[in-house]
Design a binder for these strands. Structure first.
Lengths: 217, 217
DNA sequence: TGTACATCAGTGAACGCGCGTTCACTGATGTAC
DNA sequence: TGTACATCAGTGAACGCGCGTTCACTGATGTAC
């Protein structure tokens, strides 16, 4: 969109001050920088107010113009992460009619998202968000994601593609925690000889929801 | 064991210097202090050289008498944790003859260990160990634990209590990652309305290894 | 058309904190003679 | 039995680092008159 201004995407250093009325741009730049730092280091602890400011090329104190403190910035970054994850999952299952295939596709995308954005994923689902702001509150992206997973399982059940006696919310919980464990250990223990991700994820989902071993049913 | 010396278990403050020839005691005291800090904060990042030294009641520099750096101290603490976990698991299944019950008991104890020692558990299985020393090397307590889990599953299979077509190592991997996800999310998201732990763990294990829903088989 | 001024978008010095690590040292104690 | 001395088990000051946060400030720019 509009002309690519030099300050966008540039590393630490010179940066042109925004024009009058465009001060809000810095907010986006800060979020971009924080996300970039997460991608590079894979470690949410490195996300310091000073590191983000330095990445953008502004004084450390300027962060306070847009965020009351570093915790709020982290929450905002995580929030963007949840939106991106949701979008990716929806895109993955958009044109799949088979409910079982759709479920598997959605879970696979979740796993790939985690491995492609380990720092962001760890921030979203790990201990690095301030606990009073973490997304385990009743209305939160993480809960919404769980609901969406449960609905996907429910559609399988309606099509008689998995265990009919299960509570789909409970099944969703089993699947979510299991897949989280699988991807977070992959991220945290990169030297372990992990089998291919998709196979393991598929197997986990199939068994936990009582789906037949082959995709057809 | 022998007289309880005042420096043991005491908080920050006065501490009597060890007698000649007993300097190695400080090493144990450091490990005890580090573990106590983990229990209290639940956060492996707080394990700093200075915090451990202060907890024991010695000068920060004295840590170097026994550990080349803080990373080595963390590895030593994690190592004790793996030993404790192994012991607890063996104790849990010691007098259980039914292989399925033994497997479930062992996995339940694993989960309880994690929730009772969240800081220690996170250190053992999380990203806080220095990556070159993390226990994902070929010969490591974590690998040994996985082997032991696989053997427990193998015994179920021999007794025809679970899916006979499975590779037990692969099943062990599925179970380990799933249970890890379940407990680490409980630790990291304490505000989430988690169902009872044992039920969820049992259900996860049964489904992943293809065990019948009831304990009898 | 010119200018005073309010506002916007930041800056820069400074604070105290905890961190890992270095270096030279100290004082008690056991042992060899 | 007495004593010199090596060793052991630590100490304490100091270093530079990055951190979050405070405070008073600056300079460009749009706007009202």
């Amino acid at each position: 969109m509009d002309t690519v201004t030099p300050q966008h995407g540039s590393a630490t250093g010179q940066r042109r001050r925004n024009r009058r009325g465009e001060g809000e741009r810095l907010r986006d730049d800060l979020l971009d920088a924080a996300q970039a730092l997460l991608e590079e280091t894979g470690d949410a602890r490195r996300l310091s107010l000073r590191s983000v400011a330095s990445r953008v090329g502004i004084a450390a104190t300027s962060v306070y113009l847009h965020f009351p403190d570093i915790a709020d910035l982290k929450v905002a970054v995580a929030s963007r992460g949840f939106a991106a994850l949701e979008e990716a999952r929806d895109a993955a299952s958009y044109d799949i009619t088979d409910p079982a295939e759709a479920l598997l596709a959605r879970v696979r995308v979740y796993a790939h998202f985690a491995l492609h954005h380990p720092g962001l994923y760890r921030l979203m689902f790990g201990p690095d968000l301030p606990s009073n702001l973490a997304y385990d509150a009743e209305r939160s992206p993480a809960r919404a994601a769980l609901q969406s997973l449960a609905q996907s399982i429910e559609r399988c059940r309606a099509a008689e593609m998995c265990d009919p006696s299960d509570d789909s919310i409970r099944s969703a919980l089993l699947v979510w925690t299991a897949v989280h464990g699988s991807v977070i250990l992959r991220i945290d223990r990169p030297h372990f000889p992990w089998p291919p991700l998709d196979q393991l994820v598929d197997e986990t989902v199939r068994r936990l929801v009582g789906m037949a071993p082959q995709a057809s049913c």
